[in-house]
């Protein structure tokens, strides 16, 4: 494997007195989609929070594009090109779709650049174009998630962290989201995906990592993990994919 874009070495992190991540090691290859799977409480979302600076690592090191970014704030990490699309609905429901989009470029000081990027995104996403003046809370769950990902693209990120982007969505919306993840990746962006629907997540991922009690228990190509009977039995709820 070439020099990884992101590397986590022995990361320990948690909430209160408890540790959720207990010495996690993980590496992401540039320009790939990696899917994290594992049971509830394994620490999948916690990994993303550490990477986006919302939670500080107690021990260990996070290296991004060759630089140690372990202690950087969320704003600094956004500036480096790491964008987090959170698990919950993360749009501001009372603000318009357009204002939500502009918030995505908040860390950029050049307002003209923010405006140009917002225009480019509106050009790309019909939904943003047509509903720009409506309150974000009036969109459906799938539409909100699309706008969240569109907002994440405002910073033209190198790494996008997607936390369960299809949770609670209908099959059509899920399909649209996975399609968008593929498009974003084809543009050369690295994606770290946490997905409740592990089969679907691994199916679109180049690599997969199975987390268990705060450590990486198993890594491999997405297709390999899908076919691994141990993974299927323990984490995919049944027999391996045919």
């Amino acid at each position: 494997m070439a020099e990884p874009l992101l590397q986590l070495d022995g990361v320990v992190a948690g909430y209160g007195r408890g540790d959720i991540l207990r010495g996690l090691d993980l590496a992401l290859e540039d320009g790939t989609v990696t899917c994290l799977v594992g049971p509830n409480g394994a620490g999948k979302s916690t990994v993303l929070k550490v990477l986006s600076g919302l939670l500080s690592a107690r021990q260990g090191r996070v290296v991004f594009a060759g630089d140690d970014v372990t202690r950087l704030s969320p704003a600094q990490l956004l500036g480096r090109g790491i964008v987090h699309v959170a698990q919950d609905r993360s749009l501001f429901p009372l603000m318009t779709v357009w204002d939500n989009l502009l918030m995505g470029g908040h860390v950029l000081s050049d307002r003209a650049l923010v405006r140009r990027r917002a225009d480019a995104i509106a050009e790309r996403f019909e939904l943003v174009r047509e509903r720009r003046d409506e309150r974000a809370g009036e969109l459906s769950g799938g539409q909100q998630k699309l706008v969240e990902i569109a907002r994440a693209l405002m910073l033209e990120p190198k790494l996008i962290l997607l936390d369960e982007p299809t949770m609670g969505l209908d099959p059509k919306a899920r399909h649209l989201i996975f399609e968008l993840v593929g498009e974003v990746n084809e543009e050369g962006r690295t994606v770290l995906l946490v997905e409740q629907n592990a089969r679907a997540g691994l199916a679109i991922a180049h690599h997969g990592a199975v987390l268990d009690t705060g450590r990486v228990a198993l890594t491999g190509r997405g297709s390999e993990l899908l076919e691994d009977p141990r993974v299927a039995e323990l984490y995919l709820g049944g027999a391996a994919a045919a």
Binding site: P74, H84, S90, F92, L94
Partner: peptide, 15 residues
């Protein structure tokens, strides 16, 4: 306004 709506989300956007 983003802080008023949700401070954690605002923090996540780098505010």
């Amino acid at each position: 306004l983003s802080i008023r709506e949700d401070e954690e989300k605002a923090r996540g956007l780098g505010i």
